[in-house]
């Protein structure tokens, strides 16, 4: 176990959660992230799907990295990623149909999720399969963490529920005049929330602040 999780590998796993977060620091993978964060459940499934696809595409590309001809590199990467995404899409349709209906085209858009191509180019093409696999899991989790935070806030403040459980109603908030914030369900709120998350994160880690 200690061989599999050397301190370097542990860093690969934990860095993307904060200092190298794919969304808030590397600015990757925002495209498909925003539309699925109205409720926690689809956000969680999306995060899981992206983690699986990132980890396995990293693994496969890294294993093949010495044999891939440079000229068709991008196409090979896209084919591998697209194949994995189709697998995930088919599995979702077969076993969690309701969620796959909510995610609709956004499952397909994992293919062009920049996290994938970004990690494949930056990491998997130059590193060993196991390290790449761990790197993929780490980045998927970093992406997932932001998705979960955003969807938690949007579901709680926008619909008054957490994972479908009516928290606000049980607390009796509605009877004292509390109303759900309709703007939270609107897609633009996701952007503003991520902006605020970046603000908080950078206030705590001064070295992430961009120079003028």
């Amino acid at each position: 176990m200690s061989l599999l999780f050397s301190s370097r590998n542990l860093k690969l796993l934990t860095n993307p959660l904060n200092l190298e977060n794919p969304i808030t620091v590397q600015v990757l993978g925002i495209c498909s992230a925003l539309a699925v964060t109205v409720k926690m459940k689809p956000a969680f499934v999306m995060a899981l799907s992206v983690t699986i696809v990132t980890a396995f595409s990293n693994l496969i590309i890294s294993a093949l990295r010495k044999s891939i001809p440079a000229r068709i590199r991008i196409i090979v990467q896209l084919v591998v990623v697209a194949a994995l995404v189709i697998m995930v899409d088919q599995l979702l349709k077969a076993f969690v149909y309701d969620v796959s209906k909510q995610l609709s085209v956004f499952v397909g858009l994992i293919i062009t999720n920049c996290i994938l191509m970004g990690r494949l180019e930056a990491f998997a093409m130059a590193n060993k399969p196991w390290d790449s696999f761990v790197d993929g899991i780490g980045n998927g989790m970093g992406y997932g963490a932001i998705l979960i935070i955003v969807s938690f806030l949007r579901e709680l403040l926008g619909s008054g529920t957490v994972w479908g459980y009516p928290v606000m109603e049980k607390l009796g908030a509605f009877s004292v005049g509390y109303v759900n914030n309709g703007a939270m369900i609107m897609p633009p709120m996701a952007l503003i929330l991520i902006g605020v998350i970046i603000w908080i994160q950078r206030s705590r880690n001064k070295n992430l602040i961009e120079s003028k």
Binding site: P69, V79, M87, A94
Partner: peptide, 24 residues
């Protein structure tokens, strides 16, 4: 290389699609 890749990928996907079709 690309031919082998395409054949392998297509075969895998066709297999998955056929196996999962009844569930879907």
């Amino acid at each position: 290389y690309s031919t082998v890749l395409v054949v392998v990928v297509a075969a895998l996907l066709a297999l998955a699609a056929t196996v999962l079709k009844p569930f879907q």
